[in-house]
């Protein structure tokens, strides 16, 4: 029983984390149309920085090297991770958003991700290279003294609270005039610019806010599994987040939720705990990838708008006075169209 609870709690945590990733990507792509093909890099930077923020200083002689090692309390580590991801988002945005259109922008994000991957992996002095960080302290664990399964449950609630908070903020952003301006830049960059929107600034905001969200998801990741190495944030992980958003529906945060549940939890994470088949250890991961790919293809073929498509904006309206004139106008329009 305890094991089952632990298993479900683990899936619950992954659900929250992927949900945060998907909402972050939704802000970047669903709101502002920024093709960010390096989502997972923001997660990694958030995670690493929170990791080196929570860990104590690297001990000489252990052959484990990493920067900082500040032994920060968890809220400060969380902020460090989130801010670092935001700064990285800003730096990539500086290169990618100033004059590049969506397709070139995608290439820049992909390239930036590869550079950072190589840098972090090959340079053992930053985050201990391909070995990665291990033994990152978990929030509350020292205080509460819980069994691992119970702790997972507590952590799931903790992650859910953060997810809800970010969900509320993302929805507020969507409904606000700023979110509307973001969608206008997504629809037509030149027109939004000609209508007085500083499209560079607006897209940069979407880029940074999205990066911060994904970074917070990264912080939760490293706290939950207490370790992170480059193998855990390859390009394929970016694809999982994209798949979640495509299947769920872009531009709608509900889509991000259902997508993270279907893709990230049911296919990507739940299957990790299946016992491997004798003699074919890589069979399950391969089937998993096939399933996710097929899900994306089927969605794009049969329901390209996703499970929950973007909804029409609703405005509070007063009834219009002088309806007669309006009807007369409409007659003219329909008459003129023939």
């Amino acid at each position: 029983m305890a094991i089952l609870i632990g298993y479900l709690a683990t899936l619950g945590v992954y659900f929250c984390i992927y949900n945060i990733f998907a909402i972050g990507l939704n802000i970047q792509f669903g709101y502002a149309g920024i093709l960010d093909f390096t989502v997972i890099t923001f997660m990694a930077i958030g995670a690493y920085m929170a990791g080196v923020g929570s860990l104590g200083p690297a001990q000489p002689g252990t052959e484990i090297y990493y920067i900082l090692g500040l032994s920060l309390p968890w809220p400060l580590a969380l902020i460090l991770g989130a801010v670092s991801a935001g700064v990285l988002g800003y730096l990539i945005g500086l290169i990618a958003l100033r004059r590049l259109r969506s397709d070139y922008l995608a290439i820049v994000t992909l390239a930036a991700g590869s550079i950072i991957y190589g840098l972090v992996g090959n340079n053992t002095k930053i985050f201990d290279g391909y070995e990665g960080l291990v033994g990152v302290p978990q929030p509350f664990n020292g205080v509460l003294n819980l069994s691992p399964n119970t702790y997972d449950l507590v952590f799931m609630i903790f992650a859910a609270v953060i997810m809800l908070l970010l969900w509320v903020l993302a929805n507020r952003l969507y409904k606000s005039p700023l979110g509307r301006a973001m969608r206008a830049t997504r629809e037509d960059l030149d027109v939004a610019e000609a209508f007085g929107k500083n499209t560079y600034r607006i897209r940069m905001m979407a880029m940074v806010i999205g990066a911060v969200f994904v970074g917070i998801g990264g912080v939760l990741t490293i706290w939950f599994i207490t370790a992170l190495a480059p193998a855990g944030w390859g390009t394929s992980e970016t694809f999982v987040v994209w798949a979640a958003l495509i299947v769920g529906g872009m531009g709608n945060n509900k889509g991000a939720v259902i997508g993270s549940f279907l893709v990230a939890v049911l296919f990507n994470e739940a299957t990790r705990f299946l016992p491997s088949i004798n003699g074919l250890p890589s069979l399950i991961p391969e089937i998993r990838n096939i399933c996710i790919g097929a899900l994306v293809i089927l969605t794009l073929r049969f329901r390209p708008q996703g499970v929950f498509p973007e909804r029409k904006a609703k405005f509070f309206e007063l009834p219009l006075t002088g309806r007669g004139r309006e009807r007369e106008h409409e007659v003219v329009v329909t008459g003129a169209e023939e």
Partner: peptide, 18 residues
Amino acid sequence: REYPAMTVLENLMVSPLG
């Protein structure tokens, strides 16, 4: 060049400056 995936009313709502 309208904003295609936004409603007509929303197309106008984007316009006001500042």
